[in-house]
Design a protein around this nucleic acid. Sequence first.
DNA 1: ACCTGAACACCGTTCAAGT
DNA 2: ACCTGAACACCGTTCAAGT
Lengths: 234, 234
Amino acid sequence: MATRARRPERREEPLSRERIVEVAIELLDTAGERGLTFRALAERLATGPGALYWHIAGKGELLDAATDAVVAGTLTAGPVDAAPREATRALALGVFDAVEAHPWIGAQFARAPWRSPMLRVFERLGRQVQAIGVPEAAQFTAVSALLNYILGVAGQNAANARAHQERQPDTDRAQFLGAVSASWAELDPDAYAFTRNVAEQLRDHDDREEFLAGIDFILTGIAVRHGPTGTALS
Amino acid sequence: MATRARRPERREEPLSRERIVEVAIELLDTAGERGLTFRALAERLATGPGALYWHIAGKGELLDAATDAVVAGTLTAGPVDAAPREATRALALGVFDAVEAHPWIGAQFARAPWRSPMLRVFERLGRQVQAIGVPEAAQFTAVSALLNYILGVAGQNAANARAHQERQPDTDRAQFLGAVSASWAELDPDAYAFTRNVAEQLRDHDDREEFLAGIDFILTGIAVRHGPTGTALS
DNA sequence: ACCTGAACACCGTTCAAGT
DNA sequence: ACCTGAACACCGTTCAAGT
């Protein structure tokens, strides 16, 4: 029941692919994935839905372009001369933070295979893995592991953000986690003994730290299997 | 342009939640996520769309129930008395194979947070992590890393299956990978030096082995950080 | 070349009416 | 209690007609 009170401002600049993508991102950020429709987009751009198709092939391409714009924007930053392990962490955190700021890119990321936004991250990760000294034959495997993990977390965070938004929009994050934690504590003690046991850890956990711990597990595993000796615990 | 020639068979058994979910799974497997509509479902069940709402709250619940039925079915199998590391690999492979057989659960998995299907996997992973000897305070982190990685691969495989199905349905997997690999080889040499470099590795890689390698990285990382001494390379 | 907006072919969901 | 199917409120997309 969101109010539709936003009036179509008079258009001073001409319609363009860039402008459409820009407004699409605004719409996705404020109204969520379900809020992005060609009609809403057209209204904000003071035109009809058909006009958009002159610049963009369809909704899929629009989502791709919006995701790519956000991801490209976040990957420009980052420490340039850090040690490869630190640089990998920074890179991964950049994606993590982008998903937190724009939950919809998490879902889109997980949905589109080998498309432009993902390739950007793949390339950056690859350079760090090379710098770590992973032999060439194992580089694809190492980068895939890192990327798949990052995508998994991204998708999960997006899903959580959506659930939080749709089901308990007036609670804060701590309350939301508390509710999930409480529901775990009520699970069947035989079938879900472990889950009940860690319900408290869920309540107190820090998403970012948890995410980085996973990155460290993978980097450590890569180092043990493929790195120069002595780097496993670095 | 799929033919709709399937006639509604006379219904001998009464409508039930189980029957609806069963037909929904058939529809998802044969026609993909876009093929699951309440109208198509009602036609196959020889009724009207409204009837389904007596048994299922809506489309979200239907997708949840379908995913849960498939996941629950695959988790029953698996070696009972294997070493924890082997059991974890078997468990992970079970999810991997389920996603390969039913690509749509990959997307659904990644979309639904902390719902029943995911909790089943979480619990199973948790028991293995306990058996490995990870201290209690680190168990949630360890299981989260494994689960997020599995979800990432699942989502990615689902996305790839959909892209393969929608864009080159008459090519086999090797041809599809070859096409992606070839497109990588044409990327800008400066911006995508690494990606170009591993294009050949993409062409020849084995999804299952790649997946297991990632599981091993994480398990190794967990062992190095939290396991009893000497288990890192086991 | 670019825009307009009505129209088309769908959706998920509801609900009065039936049995 | 359970089913029916027309109707409602939307979608993405197309396209004849305009400028």
